[in-house]
Design a protein around this nucleic acid. Sequence first.
DNA 1: TAGTCTGTTAGACA
DNA 2: CTGTCTAACAGACT
Length: 267
Amino acid sequence: MPELAEVEVVRRNLQRWWEGRAAHQVCVFDEQLLRQTPPDALTEALTTPLTKAGRRGKYLLCHFATGQVLVLHFRMTGKVICSDVAEPAYARLSWYIEGQGWLVFKDQRRLGRARLLEADEFDAYEPLQKMGPEPEDVTTEDLQNACTDRRLLKTALLDQSIVAGVGNIAVSEIFWRLKLPPRITCGQLDEPDWQRLVEVMPQYFEEIIERSMADEILYLEEGEMEDIFEVYGHEGDDCPRCAGEIKKQKVGGRSSYFCETCQGLSQ
DNA sequence: TAGTCTGTTAGACA
DNA sequence: CTGTCTAACAGACT
């Protein structure tokens, strides 16, 4: 489930499983995942130790001592898991870490990408160059400067050049916390609204990261993921806050979930 | 069968 | 140049 929070969970896992160690074996099952990267070059990089697992927005960054960076993007259904077999379902790329297991890039829909960049290529890499500040760093001024009055707030927050890492789920959840109607435009926010927005965004991600980590542990024991969202995917349920009903509506081309009672007028 | 889905980008259009 | 919408990418699920 790749929004910022899920990518951060993978980053923390890779830090534990992989940092300081090199792969002893590499299997490329789906070359489409690699696109511009030759499998041989990837294999060579993976067989040197990982120096750091980083993240920027929804991009996962695997740094090597050579200065090379393996950039992973999971799009809709990609993820990295640790497995005791090399090729579980939907495996696209696997590398073996001694004493840990197979690290597997899984991706049901095959939209995810892995690309190996040289140090200078990484410094100039456009998608990262264009990216806005992380939610924990963004200021009200950043947002107000980047957002025109008539633009939907939802569309603005999903624009990765304004703020990095916000996805469609996060928008619904953050709007619910702020009691904002789904179609509110940037011009309709007052100063305290912007202030609360920059406070709540990082709080939301922090909380979801923690709950996802805890959930993963629970999943290993109980075999079932808990639903950690308040409104997203909850059409028809009662609002956890006011017992109004959760509605679903297309906003900016994609589904928004919101409480019709406590999130202002739904328009 | 048609519509849906956590993301991103290109092209059409206003 | 701005912004919005759609299709496309690719596959599974309802």
